[in-house]
Design a protein around this nucleic acid. Structure first.
Lengths: 215, 215
DNA sequence: CACTATCTGTTGACTAAGCGACAAATGTCG
DNA sequence: CGACATTTGTCGCTTAGTCAACAGATAGTG
């Protein structure tokens, strides 16, 4: 089939963040949008009852009513599909809440932090983990996908209103996004943790100095 | 594109009942199933807020994300799509209730009558009509589609257990299906009508003699 | 009346998706 | 270890869907 352009649209290079750009460079061909949406939605439904590791590409495409060869025309493997699915849904969650980080507004940062906490919660409520509190709550590909979305939003905002510090926007956004995810992950694993609304301000106070070096 | 076979699958000849065979001859290609399902579902959603007559093929295909030329590869016009959509949904309603008419079981006939009443109710609750009680409650193509489904179910049952009368199964099923629809339609237009559960037995008693000529 | 605009079917070139088959990798069991 | 089944990518061919463009129909509008 050979869809070289489709690959760069379905996911990014494996070396870099390697996550979907859910809005950035989506295909205009309705067929492409359709099959990717079907595959992502099907994966989300399968993950309600199945472990991601136990799923084969065959099962996913069968459930989706999509040919297996078509799958490989869009994603190199099931991990890439997972990343795109997570990135898309997390991005949609933030979009639905109207969260737009435009630089230094702490309200937007608060929204992102809240989004990460809530997305993490809902992802593992009906997900694989939750048996051993010490175990990794989510597949690593899911984690990197969430971080990549956060990084992208922070990067956009920083570029619009760059702070005075000498650090590059890429460094700032990467540092902050990993910090946010790490904090949220730690919060989630704490046995009797506060609600996300109660705890998010604490994370925000920890992370804000990264973005505003001298304030 | 030329899909001569697809046409005969999407709908039947315009001269005869002209309704979809939702299960009978469905295509095995996932793409055609997908496209037809998308179009039918989109039409159903549009009908919640729009009048059928005011909808153009353009609007339907735009909302469905399907090319207009593709539409004409499956349906000759929007009326055919409406018929297929109604037939499919009504058939699904009966399937969901486990209604199978296998000849002379009055319970199954009761189920069909109840299904017609309930389907009519829900179709016009969020539909076009309901402004003037004298007006036609539903577009004629919807009505013929419902009747055709009923006729098909009755015909299947009669063929399995043919009654002793000299009439053909086709005549019996057609007569009964039109009678059922006419009765249900009259019931629905009555200002303070009974519930469908209360009124269905009356329709059933009226119609049963058609199917059992000398009992 | 002509002018504009929209909708309707239809056509042909291009592209994505389906399908079967294939070799290679990966488990899995005796 | 070998035999076996499953999964994984990949390839060529066929088919369905997209897209732009077309002529004809219908309907306002000045």
């Amino acid at each position: 089939m050979a869809l070289p352009s489709a690959i760069s649209e379905g996911f990014l290079s494996p070396s870099e963040p390697r996550v979907a750009s859910p809005e950035g460079s989506e295909s205009q061909d309705p067929r492409v949008r359709r099959t990717r949406q079907i595959l992502q939605q099907t994966l989300a439904e399968l993950l309600r009852t199945r472990e991601f590791e136990t799923l084969s590409v065959q099962e996913i495409t069968d459930a989706a009513g999509v040919n297996r060869a078509t799958f490989y025309a869009h994603y190199p493997d099931k991990f890439a599909l997972l990343e795109c699915m997570v990135a898309g849904r997390f991005h949609a969650l933030l979009q639905g809440r109207g969260v737009v980080f435009d630089g230094s507004c702490s309200m937007a940062l608060q929204g992102i932090v809240l989004g990460v906490c809530d997305f993490l919660t809902q992802s593992l409520r009906q997900g694989a983990g939750a048996q051993c509190p010490k175990a990794n709550p989510l597949p690593p590909h899911m984690e990197s996908a969430i971080i990549a979305v956060v990084r992208g939003m922070l990067l956009d905002g920083i570029r619009k209103h760059p702070p005075e510090g000498a650090h590059s926007p890429e460094l700032l956004s990467s540092t902050a996004s990993w910090a946010i995810y790490g904090a949220a992950r730690e919060w989630l694993q704490t046995p009797n943790h506060l609600s996300s609304e109660e705890f998010a301000p604490a994370i925000q106070r920890l992370v804000a100095p990264i973005l505003h070096p001298e304030s």
